Simulated assay, not measured.
Amino acid sequence: MRQLLRQYPAQRDDIADLVTRRPLPGPGLPQVDPFLFLNHHGPQTYRPGNSGLPFGPHPHRGFETVSFILEGEMAHLDSGGHESVIRAGGIQWMTAGSGLIHAEISPASFKRAGGPLEILQLWVNLPGRLKMTKPAYTGLQREDIPAIPVEGGVVNLISGAFGETQGPFESLTGVAMMTVALEAGGHVDLPAPAGRSVFFYVVAGSPSANGTPVKPHHLATFAMDGDTIAVTAQAPATILYGHADPIGEPVVSHGPFVMNTREEIVRAIDDYNAGLFGKPPVIR
């Protein structure tokens, strides 16, 4: 079993009327290589006639974004021509790579009727050799995500392997991602392969990891001294969990760009201003 080292609380940082918590980066924890950033939006309920999500067209380069729609809906449009509306339980995986402009907004139906909303967005770094890879996007609905029964709960497998099951998303760097939902008394042994970084964020509840309770809205870090994390829930709990090989390269970030050097950041800004990321998607 891996030793739990520390728990880091998510910092509250609302965006307009969108409730937002951010455990990463945070005080004392700049990254969990290759995991760079997590925003936890909600849970909250939007009134009818709302303005929806505030994320209009904006650029990215050098990493991937993975969005988990736990409640509500999210529409995606980007300069590569991809467009979708993903409902509760679905996942969006975008490889920004060499550069993409995208928008993450609420569809007209949600703005009109309102309703519950809870979304997680995780940024996953790319190594230098892949930062200028061709941009890509895949959006899958709940029914496309394998739901693997475990003792008193379920593992929703997004990428990588869990037991004999393979997730539907193929990460460029072999990242394994899943969400775990446990009822009271539920238990699951999560794989933590040797040498890989673990990402363990408690979305709701206070499950125990290898016997230590982890607080809600906290990110737990672990030593590299084992290959399993045993999770038990005394009350219902939801966890965002993943593991990946560390990249071990310099990280230089500036807003929506994540590169290895300051010079590469300057080039990203210049390329964006020159229109090399494509035309911004048109919000209808």
Rank of each mutant, 00 (worst) to 15 (best):
N125P: 11
P57T: 07
P59F: 04
I101N: 04
A108W: 01
L53E: 01
G114I: 00
V85G: 01
R142D: 13
P116K: 00
H60N: 05
M94K: 12
Q121P: 08
H82K: 09
G56R: 13
D78V: 08
Q141I: 04
G72Q: 00
G62D: 09
I86P: 09
Q121S: 10
S109H: 06
Q44T: 00
A108S: 10
I69A: 04
L122C: 08
L77D: 12
I105M: 12
L38T: 13
F63V: 04
H60G: 06
G81P: 02
G97Q: 00
H58N: 05
D78F: 09
G80R: 13
H41N: 14
L70E: 14
I86T: 15
L77H: 11
L53R: 02
G97F: 00
H58S: 06
Y137Q: 07
G115Y: 03
I105T: 15
A96W: 05
T65K: 11
E64M: 11
S51C: 04
K111C: 15
A75L: 14
F63M: 15
G56E: 08
H60E: 09
P116R: 01
G49D: 07
Q92N: 10
K131Q: 14
L53F: 09
N125L: 06
G42H: 01
H41A: 11
N125V: 10
H76F: 08
F110Q: 14
L77S: 15
P43Q: 02
W93G: 09
E73Q: 14
R142E: 12
L120H: 09
L53N: 04
L120A: 09
R47F: 11
F63T: 08
A108D: 12
P54L: 07
P48I: 01
P107T: 03
S79V: 04
A75S: 14
E71K: 14
A75G: 15
G49Y: 05
H76D: 06
Q92I: 10
P127M: 04
G128Q: 13
T133R: 14
P59Y: 03
H76S: 10
G72S: 02
L126K: 07
V124C: 08
E83Q: 15
L130D: 12
A113L: 14
S84T: 13
L77V: 12
L38S: 13
L122Q: 09
W123I: 12
M132V: 12
A96I: 05
G97W: 02
I91L: 11
H60L: 05
Y137I: 06
L122F: 12
F110P: 05
M94S: 09
P127W: 04
R129I: 10
G90K: 03
I101L: 05
P107Y: 02
G115Q: 00
Q121T: 10
L122P: 10
N125I: 08
I91F: 10
Q92R: 08
I101W: 03
S84Q: 11
N50I: 00
P54C: 11
K134V: 12
L38Y: 12
F55H: 04
G62I: 02
R142M: 03
